[in-house]
């Protein structure tokens, strides 16, 4: 079970942001966003000592839960699923996350955190808001991280 104090601080800071992200940036209905954010937080509570990057982890899980809830509703998924090809982007991001997992683990802590949030499909603005930095700093961190990962993945393949 979780260390309650640390978990509670995390919850109070991140639950509102996860629910808000699902509604404002992903277009889910509020009731789905609230249920998905809560479900992700329950699963995080059960794994609090083993999840390495809880901010990225909880957003990824919440998004997947929200998709699962939305497909079972009469009004279905938000329009972006059909309108802008996001499923393909999500799949690509998931595949990249799998391929890049080992390399990302070797990045410096800040770059790793930024890259994991990017792989969870957060925009630079969302990542900046999550980490308390600016979008410009996030873009800089991402550029450094991508260069480092290309080198790491290239050296592992070779």
């Amino acid at each position: 079970m979780a260390d309650d104090d640390a978990y509670e601080v995390f919850f109070e800071e991140q639950y509102p942001r996860v629910a808000a992200m699902l509604i404002a940036y992903r277009g889910f209905a509020p009731e789905i966003a609230e249920e998905a954010a809560a479900e992700a937080m329950i699963r995080l509570y059960e794994r609090w000592h083993t999840v390495r990057s809880p901010r990225a982890w909880v957003r990824t899980v919440a998004f997947r839960v929200a998709v699962g809830l939305a497909v079972n509703r009469p009004d279905g998924l938000p329009e972006w699923e059909v309108a802008d090809g996001r499923p393909a982007e999500e799949l690509e991001a998931a595949l990249l996350a799998l391929a890049a997992g080992t390399a990302a683990a070797k990045l410096p802590p800040r770059q790793r955190e930024v890259m994991e949030l990017a792989l969870a499909d957060l925009s630079p603005a969302e990542i900046a808001e999550t980490l308390g930095s600016t979008p410009e700093q996030v873009r800089g961190n991402l550029a450094h991280a991508r260069r480092a990962m290309r080198t790491l993945m290239g050296s592992e393949e070779g």
Binding site: F11, E12, Y15, P16, A20, Y25, Y45
Partner: peptide, 24 residues
């Protein structure tokens, strides 16, 4: 982004986030 900021404030209300935490 404006909607996001408004929603974060909404869900951060102490009674709302406290209630959600207890249920979780």
């Amino acid at each position: 982004e404006a909607a996001y900021a408004r929603l974060v404030a909404h869900y951060s209300a102490p009674e709302r986030v406290g209630s959600a935490l207890e249920r979780v």
